[in-house]
């Protein structure tokens, strides 16, 4: 019984896409089956060294999760580097909600493998699995709320 149980769970954890997305805050609290449904909608992409994932001001369509490699988020105008993201990190999640252009560029500074989850995928998900769609939207709202609270705190502290 124990062997079956272990094998069952080992099999689950083998999928790198599932492993990566289960750690993302907007996919937290989701069951294995729900994560599988999401993984089924995502797009795995490979990026060469110095290839742009997206450019500043480009129309934004969705978020990315890094499976492996390294991504640099920077402002091409000022040359400021905002972040260097590694395996398991995610970026661009705001694009799931609004259609504002990208505020910075994302460049692959190592050969990278990313998972893309886009607004059209979220809309499809809401139609096909409304409960799951609602959970993701709630998680997104929670993540944004937390960020807002953090920004407020930082603003108060800076005063």
């Amino acid at each position: 019984m124990e062997t079956i149980y272990k094998n069952y769970f080992r099999k689950k954890n083998k999928d790198p896409v599932l492993k990566a997305i289960e750690k993302i805050p907007i996919f937290e609290t989701l069951s294995y089956k729900e994560l599988k449904n999401i993984a089924h909608l995502t797009h795995e992409r490979n990026y060469k060294l110095n290839e742009y994932v997206f450019k500043k001001h480009a129309p934004a369509e969705g978020m990315y999760v890094i499976l492996d490699g390294e991504i640099e988020i920077k402002d091409p105008d000022s040359g400021n580097i905002y972040a260097k993201l590694h395996e398991g990190d995610f970026f661009g999640e705001l694009a799931l909600l609004d259609e504002e252009p990208r505020s910075a560029s994302a460049i692959s500074i190592k050969t990278s493998r990313l998972i893309g989850f886009f607004r059209t995928d979220l809309l499809t998900l809401i139609k096909r699995y409304p409960d799951l769609g609602n959970k993701i939207l709630l998680n997104l709202a929670r993540v944004l709320g937390e960020r807002l609270r953090k920004t407020n705190k930082e603003l108060t502290n800076s005063k």
Binding site: R45, E51, Y52, V53, F54, P59, A60, E61, T120
Partner: peptide, 13 residues
């Protein structure tokens, strides 16, 4: 291609 991924998805939708 990666370059046209987001715009391609938008077009399909």
């Amino acid at each position: 291609p990666n370059k046209y991924l987001e715009i391609g998805l938008r077009t399909i939708y």
